[in-house]
Design a protein around this nucleic acid. Structure first.
Lengths: 245, 245
DNA sequence: CCGTTTTGTTACCAACTGTTACGAAGGGGC
DNA sequence: GCCCCTTCGTAACAGTTGGTAACAAAACGG
């Protein structure tokens, strides 16, 4: 299983950002959303492992959203709510929520619940939970995560900077899944997600360019880190994992 | 199976457009219709995989239309209706509808039903569902969909832009079937379907022209991408598929 | 502190794609 | 054939997006 991707759905921007930052610090890809439409975009765009859903979403209703989502696919959902009354809790479970956390909550409690639900979801879908992947192999390349050591198909060692390494890991964890700049930025904890000259910087583009320069045969026409115009980037090869622990 | 082609039959223009847009966004070719005559035109013009049929069609009656159509061929039909009373539902099933959705409905529910019915239709007609065609061969050309790699009969590699690739795929999926600009636009998610100078742009024409420039021996008198005057374009050769998975 | 390395920003360019305008090519009626 | 109208092809243009060199700022390591 790749790095878990979580959607943080809350209409209070401050709460949202706080949760996103906290979850990112603990190794998750956390993507902020503020509406059902945003959730659907992410679901359509790629894998989502867990949704943290605020019950009160301005004019939308979290319980209803949950009900919609649940009737279609079984993404795990954890409700987050200021309404801790029991009947509210029940309304959450009845539409299929996997857990329910009352605000204000302890962030570590949140983390524990998130891990528990992800763990459950993994078991039920009989995916092996790889506690620590030690080595990734892709297209002849070998990346030893433990020693942080990347070797080319011909056996030459290639040095990556810290951010380049992080970027590579994100792609290795999500092979063949197109990642938006927003998602990459979230996983790397950099600011910029913009792709035009106005707006925020183009850190992701530049970073991808630099990584390409080190791992692509011909960086001008990349075989591995392909551009999905209007979307983002995708690692266009399969990745084999050796695991330890 | 090529991209599924759906007819969206509803006399409320707004509802129709909304459904069409939604279905297009999810990868279907969705064609709006507002009458039995329009349905028949499409059925006569080419393959139709599923009809979404409003029960109340102004002066026409959806149930009757369904009954007519069913007595002739077995296109799957899903009824869409504001009349959710049980007897109405039964009237729908009795004339052979494959499913029945009450308005107002959740769009994603619609999507789920559409996919279910298409899936069923595929199985029952014992068509192998090709999850991923890896290579197309046509008139000496080879297109490797996995690597997104197009090679000319003489073995030269030809670079296509994203939209050009998408256009080629649409034709490869529908060889020898004349496709209207409307259908192509739907499959490509571009706006323009108009062919005159007024109205919407001529994106499809220009795109076809560009693709011709890359794959035709003599773009001025095309052998592959022929124009069907007053209709659209057609790929005038057979296509062989190699499949993987 | 200072030099080095890493990382983000900016600017410029190239590629992609939709729009428009204009001319050419059909097609029907006479 | 000739005229007229519709349809189509395509060059030219413009708006957007992505690649990347060059610079600036920040982090790092003594």
């Amino acid at each position: 299983m790749a790095i878990p991707r979580l959607l943080v759905v809350d209409d209070d921007r401050e709460v949202r950002e706080m949760m996103v930052q906290f979850l990112q610090q603990h190794g998750f890809i956390a993507l902020p959303c503020d509406s059902e439409a945003a959730i659907r975009e992410h679901l359509a765009a790629g894998r989502v492992d867990l949704i943290l859903l605020d019950v009160m979403l301005g004019d939308e209703n979290g319980v209803e959203i949950c009900s919609h989502l649940r009737s279609e696919q079984d993404v795990p959902i954890i409700f987050v709510s200021a309404l801790s009354a029991d009947h509210q809790r029940m309304a959450g479970y009845e539409v299929g929520a996997d857990d329910y956390i009352a605000k204000p909550f302890n962030l570590d409690l949140l983390l524990a619940r998130v891990r528990a639900v992800l763990h459950r979801a993994r078991r039920s879908s009989s995916l092996v939970y790889r506690r620590s992947v030690s080595t990734y192999r892709f297209d002849g390349w070998t990346y030893d995560a433990k020693r942080d050591d990347l070797a080319s198909p011909k056996g030459f060692q290639v040095a990556l900077s810290r951010k380049e390494t992080a970027l590579l890991k994100v792609f290795l964890a999500n092979p063949r899944i197109p990642l938006t700049r927003e998602e990459i930025a979230a996983a790397l904890d950099v600011t910029g997600g913009g792709q035009t000259d106005e707006g925020s910087g183009r850190a992701i583009d530049v970073l991808v360019g630099r990584l390409r320069g080190k791992i692509e045969n011909n960086p001008k026409s990349p075989d591995l880190l392909k551009t999905e115009r209007g979307v983002g980037y995708v690692l266009a090869c399969d990745v084999a994992l050796d695991e330890a622990g």
